[in-house]
Amino acid sequence: MPQAARSALWRAAGVSVCGARHLAAQAPCQDAVQFYTDDHMAIVAVADGHGDPKYSASDVGAQIAVDIAVELLMELSEELLDSRPPRHLEELLKIHFPQRIAWEWNRRVRRHAGHTDPDGAWHADVTRYGTTLLGALITPRRALFFQLGDGDILLVGPQIERIFDLHDDIYGSVTHSLSQPGSARYARIRCLDLEETQLMVLSSDGVSDCLQGEPDPYLDVGPWLLSRIHEGGFDTAVSDLAPWLSELSMRGNGDDATLGLIYWRPPT
């Protein structure tokens, strides 16, 4: 079900639908989305559990991943107030933030798998929880983006910007995963000073994989969503997204599909 949250500066929402292929197989949706906003920050996280039978608990792994991402990104909001250039901050965060995400995900997954008082070291039992993770933390001045595995982050303003290009290792259905040993080394981080951004979109690969072509039709998702928000308001646009994503999945590759949104409220 679509949900939304509001603060003085932002609206945030997440919508996830079970893919047509999973519906036909009576399999659960293995995507997850989580979001948060207050007057100081907005956060969205999207995770995409791997659909293969080897990853039979990836719906749980994806939910744990987005919960952790929101919690840990929240703790970084103070650091984003730092006056150092974004590049510098990015380098600092790369040293420890992916490791914190990986450690905490391993710890909670192992607990779910029945380990007693586990630490966050990798264990083979986490494999079946395999998932990707995208996260974004927005403050009034700056934004921080996190990616491990596939999925996309778009910034929509006067220009449209895809935050991360496809990782060099990602071909076909191959992706990186939180369930890999040493997963933190595959994570990417970007920090940006934002100007005139109106909308940020996080999406699982179920969205962009159905929109392949030249010029890239995935880039149209951002402007199209923004125009829907301007026409009918944020809540209406969000409530229309579940049937839209279901249609996309049914006409496309049948994968689960998820969108996480942060919308900059216009000044009143």
């Binding site: 159905c210 929109l211 149209d220 951002g222 402007p223 199209w224 125009s227 839209w244």
Partner: peptide
Amino acid sequence: MEGREDIDPLGSVSRSK
């Protein structure tokens, strides 16, 4: 971004190859 906001991306959906 001009002109792209009216294009519903559903029109560009394709199945996997």
